[in-house]
Design a binder for these strands. Structure first.
Lengths: 349, 349
DNA sequence: TTGAAAGCGCTAACAA
DNA sequence: TTGTTAGCGCTTTCAA
């Protein structure tokens, strides 16, 4: 008899159904068709299994087949609209394919990224999605070494299949819109558009910054170095830099391009100290979308990145067995002020 | 020689270091101390392992030890500030303890909750955290049946250890603040506070609704049934009901208690259509906190739930091996309008 | 202080 | 059409 409390195994089902373990295995995992097991035998076995509450032990199967059914995702952070949206679509899509998703967050630390990947390898993941990696090439190297299927998302690797949103196009759209809409201001220090936030060492940021510079140069003749304040992603830093800028140029600039939601949140903690009138002479845009961010006291242009499409394309690349370094671009969308995009927050709360 | 491309096993390390597999196993998993293996033998083995890039196969260990090192979390949704904050703290804390976190989201469907739990069981998870379950008792039963350690978060089970935020206290605080601050309004239909959103069948909602009713009754003498519009968590529904309410009572109510961020997002899509003056005669509060929600065109009182504490306490309950149904309460915090809480979004972007 | 060997639950040759 | 058996990589007695 089976040890009580523990789950039944195929040996239990074999005994109970009068079949052999291998027949049970085949009947239960679907391979009975080509193992030429009689329909009724298979059915009898399935009935017994159901009655006993059998469910397969994926560890054992994984060990035997050298495929775990686990798929990993490496993320910088979880509590960030963009990344949590990625992880949402990732888990949904993984389970939909019968895979079990495992997520690690690394707080943008290269060492942790490598450690995380190694942890995931211990669990014998079959493939991994790497989003927003600060050191893509290191991770890419490890994946190639151990022959692990992988795709980069958001921040690409030169050595691996990658899918990113089209940062250059998105940033150009936003910069142009800001410059077009900017009011004329007397003070020359405030008459220019500024960019706040992001890390120029990271691919996404550098693309956005370059696109901002280009748009400014094209539409305004030139772009000064002081117009780009790439102070990183930490809200507190963005808050400081926002304050410093306002002090330096004597008020809000005519145009402000904020690079990412965390930077925006930081800047906001200073912006809210300003009188409402301060915003009359200023146009603000943020690269990234937040439904509440769209309804602040002042209007904000936002850029929405299609995280669903990013994940879908990443899975598609894996499906087609991509190994060579391709770079897929997903176009982002410019969202006018005071607009709620449908279905951005979970429809199910 | 080892098959190229595949990871080295303890047998490879054994051969290379001239020790036996069992000695290697002990040297590498820390049990060498009480297996009385010589310090230098252990060191030699570890050196070889490091040189070969050995990392343990958790599937094999799990199979042998009947402990996988996996810990599961079941969530209704991922792209929701509260739940994504829970999952963030969960993954962080799990990895910190050397456990591998696996998250499933169920879209508030009882069937999916059961299916998800069974999937996790196939992966031989050692324990599971169940957050926001619509049918806690069904899940509780399964866990007890298979002897799986588990804790409920946010929505409790009567049969299992649970940790929830103190919905009654939080809702009472918010309701009282709204009622105290509410302006006097001539139209009697608009002079009362209303509650919008939430599902009265769910524990958290029902507690909040009851607390709202109590506070209203206590401070205003009575609470009419039409003051509670528990229309669920879907933004679109909340938008409809917001519009209907405004039509019915001829404008914004003097006090509006919005139950949850998704309901708020829905309501917002209608609120933004109103002229700014409409908000002068109204006080709005939302149960749940969002940093951008705190800076809308109108002031909003918000309630912050301590998701970090929820997760910590849940792990603590597991640690102490709790099996009996205890219910722990974590107090939430009332956040005044236009306030950014530190560290709510990821400090690291 | 170390090694040999059995076995965790499953799959896949190979036999029958 | 089904059964027997070896083995995935690890841990853990038991023996040496």
């Amino acid at each position: 008899m089976r040890r009580t409390g523990s789950k039944p195994t195929i040996y239990d089902i074999a005994r109970l159904s009068g079949a052999s373990p291998s027949t049970v295995s085949a009947a239960l995992n679907g391979s009975w068709k080509d193992r030429r097991i009689r329909e009724e035998t298979a059915q009898r076995i399935r009935d017994v299994a159901a009655a006993e509450g059998y469910s397969i032990n994926m560890q054992a199967r994984g060990l035997r087949k050298a495929r775990s059914g686990l798929v990993g995702m490496i993320l910088p952070a979880h509590d960030n609209r963009f990344f949590s949206s990625l992880s949402q679509h990732f888990t949904t899509e993984a389970w939909r394919r019968g895979l079990c998703p495992v997520i690690v967050s690394t707080r943008r630390e290269p060492q942790e990224e490598v450690r995380s990947l190694e942890s995931l390898l211990s669990y014998a993941i079959d493939s991994v999605f790497i989003a927003g990696a600060t050191d893509p090439e290191a991770l890419s190297r490890i994946c190639h070494q151990v022959g692990l299927a992988h795709v980069f998302i958001d921040l690409p690797s030169m050595q691996s299949p990658s899918v990113v949103s089209d940062n250059a196009a998105g940033a150009a759209m936003l910069a142009r819109k800001i410059i077009e809409t900017m009011p004329a201001v007397d003070d020359p220090r405030r008459a220019k558009p500024y960019l706040l936030g992001g890390d120029p060492r990271l691919y996404a940021s550098s693309r956005r910054i370059a696109a901002f510079r280009e748009a400014v140069t094209e539409m305004r003749g030139h772009c000064d170095d002081d117009q780009v304040i790439a102070c990183g992603y930490v809200p507190a830093r963005a808050a400081e830099e926002m304050e410093r800028l306002i002090d330096r140029i004597g008020g809000l600039p005519a145009g402000l391009f904020i690079n990412s939601i965390p930077a925006f949140e930081g800047a906001l903690s200073h912006l809210v100290l300003l009188p409402p009138a301060a915003f009359a002479q200023s146009v603000i845009g943020c690269y990234d979308y937040d439904p509440f961010g769209a309804f602040l006291q002042f209007p904000v242009y936002m850029v929405w990145q299609d995280s669903h499409a990013l994940v879908q394309r990443a899975f598609a690349l894996l499906d087609q067995g991509a190994k060579t370094p391709v770079l897929e671009m997903i176009p982002p969308v410019l969202v006018p002020p005071r607009t709620i995009l449908p279905g951005t927050l979970s429809e199910q709360g």
